[in-house]
């Protein structure tokens, strides 16, 4: 594979896929340990109405309003779930099910009712993204990586997901100890004077930011898969939190690279003409990794 082919067409989607996978897998580790894995599922559903509303208000597909809209929708969803759980005395799983399906339905309906034909916003895109279309047309080969003119033509999604991934890594490093303590023993964390409620909410907000940034580039299905599969697989490999986080990053990267390559080139190897959905394939590979660790992972059993 020559640089003239690879750099313009595959490098950027590959990078975006990797960054999105890592950005989702990192908070996913803590969601899994807190038994809140399905928060990721809920968030990635409610992002849709937020983005649609942001589009209807501003009239354009711009990054910042969409990010704000999606974050607002995520917060509304969390508040609604908590409200139904507390005031209605309904168990959290069912409360979540009520809120995210209704908000997703509202998003689909608004999308179908409003005129979005002029812009690239539809339900299919929301579900499985458009990783393959994020190509870097200004690039001619590896040399373009040092060419400022060509670099200016990079798809904006790359910059956004890179910033979000860095932000998540930084937040994780900064709040590692309180996050770890409150995840494993909330009562102990509270006696130490840690604001456990704020830490829990912060984790949800960080997850929402990761979901929105990844959603923008790769669609909600990868978001859910990456929140859950790599951390779950890592959980079956090790008992130590640091190792689990590192393993989950490794699994996320393997899923993204292998999934992208299999989707782009796998059908060609099998003699078919066209590629298949990269987002779907990345989710599939992460599932295969989880299946392998569930069958043979050293720490797969309950103690």
């Amino acid at each position: 594979m020559s640089g003239a082919d690879f750099v313009p067409f595959s490098l950027v989607p590959l990078l975006i896929g990797c960054l999105a996978a890592v950005a989702c897998a990192l908070p996913g580790n803590f969601l899994i340990l807190r038994r809140q894995a399905l928060i990721g599922d809920a968030i990635s559903h409610v992002v849709l109405p937020g983005i649609v509303m942001a589009f209807l208000v501003t009239g354009t597909i711009a990054a910042i309003p969409m990010l704000i809209g999606a974050a607002a929708a995520a917060l509304i969803a969390v508040a609604a779930i908590e409200g139904i759980r507390r005031f209605g005395r309904i168990e959290p799983g069912a409360a979540m099910g009520v809120v995210f399906t209704s908000m997703f339905a509202a998003g689909v309906l608004i999308l179908e009712l409003s005129d979005t034909s002029g812009v690239h916003l539809d339900v299919e895109h929301a579900l499985y993204g458009n990783l393959e279309s994020l190509i870097w047309l200004d690039a001619t080969g590896w040399a373009s990586l040092t060419d400022p003119v060509a670099l200016a033509g990079l798809p904006p999604e790359l910059g956004r997901i890179a910033v979000v991934a860095l932000l998540i890594v930084a937040l994780l490093a900064l709040f590692w100890r309180p996050l770890a303590i409150s995840t494993f023993d909330e009562g102990f964390a509270a006696t130490l004077g840690l604001p456990v409620g704020a830490i829990g909410l912060g984790l949800v907000i960080v997850s929402a930011i990761a979901a929105v940034a990844a959603f923008d580039a790769v669609g909600s299905i990868i978001v859910i898969a990456m929140f859950i599969c790599p951390p779950a697989a890592a959980r079956l490999v090790t008992d130590r939190l640091v190792h689990q986080v590192l393993w989950s990053v490794a699994f996320a990267l393997i899923s993204a690279v292998l999934g992208y390559v299999l989707a782009g080139y796998g059908p060609l190897w099998l003699g078919f003409g066209n590629s298949v959905s990269a987002a779907g394939m990345i989710a599939t590979v992460s599932g295969v990794i989880l299946a392998l660790t569930a069958i043979a992972g050293p720490k797969r059993r309950r103690i």
């Binding site: 038994r35 898969a225 599939t284 599932g287 569930a294 720490k299």
Partner: peptide, 19 residues
């Protein structure tokens, strides 16, 4: 496995849907 049911649900729904 040691995974809780919610993690299993999330993994299955995303992987099957992705496939």
């Amino acid at each position: 496995t040691r995974l809780s049911e919610d993690a299993a649900i999330g993994a299955v729904l995303s992987v099957f849907f992705g496939f």
